[in-house]
């Protein structure tokens, strides 16, 4: 039972942060329920109240748990009660109760200020970065360059194998550009690799969560038939890669693209052909 309550508590934190916004929401629901002149508002208030009560009972995570990835996605339930809608309604309903025009303006400014002080803007560098080159794809130029170089190299050497790995930004962006480059490690950890310790290590190296050891990494890249490796610029990686037969194809804007001519294409162990 306490595990179920934990799921609920964590979900509330994930959706409302601290208690500040939850108090906003509850106040808005109470206002909606008591706003006599807005019948639709009461309908809205009742709906939000039922949902909030329902989401707090352990029965919901108990029966929806498996569908919500064992409760880790319980927060998604809150999608059906978007907080901004009821907060917006309560704000306008509250201002509507005030007769004096000047006081209405003051109330509106105070409510907006409270939303801003209590919240945190989504317009910030963590979410939105400015792209001065403005490619509409919004994918960094170096990813296009690496994709082009891989194709050119494959055509020049007659090597049909275009399997690459690299840190997360490389993996995420290259497949948005070019479906002709196969990735040795996708974003999700495929279930069928759960039992292969080599793959766990391989993925950890290629996704940058382990400090690369050139010899071991070459061994793994050979095992998984990956003949292109993109890495963020690093002298130790470069030395160990080159000592193991890798060539540098590209080096710019913090990225290095390596190629191994000796790795032959064949059936992989990924469960796919």
């Amino acid at each position: 039972m306490s595990a179920l309550f934990d799921i609920i508590r964590i979900a509330y934190q994930q959706v409302f942060g601290g208690s500040f916004y939850l108090i906003y929401l509850l106040a808005a629901v109470v206002l909606a329920l008591t706003a006599k002149s807005f019948k639709g508002g009461r309908f809205l208030g009742v709906y939000y109240l039922i949902c909030l009560i329902l989401f707090t009972t352990p029965l919901v995570p108990r029966y929806l748990g498996s569908f919500l990835r064992d409760g880790t996605n319980y927060w998604r339930l809150f999608w059906i009660i978007p907080a901004p809608i009821i907060i917006g309604f309560a704000a306008v309903a509250l201002i509507g109760q005030i007769k004096n025009k000047r006081n209405q303006v003051i109330a509106a400014i105070l409510i907006l200020a409270a939303l801003m002080v209590g919240g945190k803007p989504v317009y910030r560098a963590e979410y939105f970065q400015y792209d001065p080159a403005f490619l509409p794809t919004k994918i960094p130029m170096e990813m296009y360059e690496m994709a082009a170089i891989m194709h050119e190299n494959a055509a020049r050497t007659g090597d049909p194998n275009l399997t690459a790995v690299g840190p997360a930004p490389f993996v995420e962006e290259i497949r948005q550009i070019d479906s002709g480059i196969r990735l040795g490690a996708g974003r999700f950890f495929p279930n069928y690799h759960g039992i292969d310790p080599d793959y766990v290590e391989y993925r950890s190296y290629t996704q940058g969560s382990l400090v690369p050891d050139g010899a071991r990494m070459t061994q793994l890249l050979t095992k998984y038939r990956t003949n292109y490796y993109a890495s963020l610029e690093s002298i130790p990686i470069q030395e160990s890669m080159m000592a193991n037969g890798w060539q540098i194809l590209y080096r710019e804007r913090g990225w290095v693209l390596y190629y191994h001519p000796g790795i032959a294409y064949g059936k992989t162990t990924t469960g796919y052909e």
Partner: peptide, 15 residues
């Protein structure tokens, strides 16, 4: 108000 609540909604991870 809904716009303001949306724009300043980064107080938690999954709003």
């Amino acid at each position: 108000f809904v716009w303001a609540a949306n724009v300043w909604s980064s107080y938690a991870v999954y709003t």
